[in-house]
Amino acid sequence: MKASVRLKVRRQDNPKSTPYWESFEIPYRQHLNVINLLMAIQENPVNEHGQKVAPVVWECSCLEEVCGSCTMIINGKVRQSCSALVDQFEQPIVLEPMSKFPVVRDLRVDRRAMFETLKKIQGWVNIDGYFNLGPGPVLDEKIRMKCYEYSRCMTCGCCCEACPQFNSRSPFIGAFAFGQVHLFNSHPVGKFDEARRLDSIMGMGGLADCGNAQNCLRACPKNIPLPDAIAELGWTTTKRAVTRFFKE
């Protein structure tokens, strides 16, 4: 049995400072996850050389892989740290902040770009007011099952991090956005705003910028079929483009 877990963290003191590596040794217990390791550092912030350092900063909330806030790069691949079990990784376990979002401090990043995108694509269903609207429209069970998959998106950023097209040189908005456009356009009430949502993904950085690398499918912790949504929207945006060109 291993006596301790070796952890290597890419740290950054503030958004503008230079990142550096720092290693830690954490006493081994059974069934540890990466969050436990970070909590152990918080309790006893001492690096491998025995020096007292500032505890590593990270974000987490639900601890059951549904909120997405603890997303980081673990041994080279992006995922949630709460569901990352120490026994499944080779040591040292290397933690890095996501590279496609601005670092706030250590492992904490600013994913505001994703939320701005959700606002732009209108990632919600518009309703008229607060009064009782009566029972909602009936949805085909097959469509409902598909919608459920897209509804599990937690805006964690894995699809963006793993995407070769999502980077600082490209305005590409990221695959999650297309899953949400597809979700809300499939909703009987959400469908009223279909054209507006389609228009919002037909500019620079929109759907046409997808390069079909399909890393989003592999990286998504919820196995959301994002390439399906992208391909479906490929056809609806084409129809929308024809409509715009000839009829509006």
Binding site: G76, A162, N167, R169, F172, N212, A213, R218
Partner: peptide
């Protein structure tokens, strides 16, 4: 322009379509 806005990441994410993306 499309090439300029792309990056390669087939080392950590060595998947079939990601390689096709690079080769394209």
């Amino acid at each position: 322009i499309i090439v300029y806005t792309s990056t390669t990441n087939f080392v950590p994410y060595s998947y079939y379509r990601n390689w096709m993306y690079f080769f394209q």
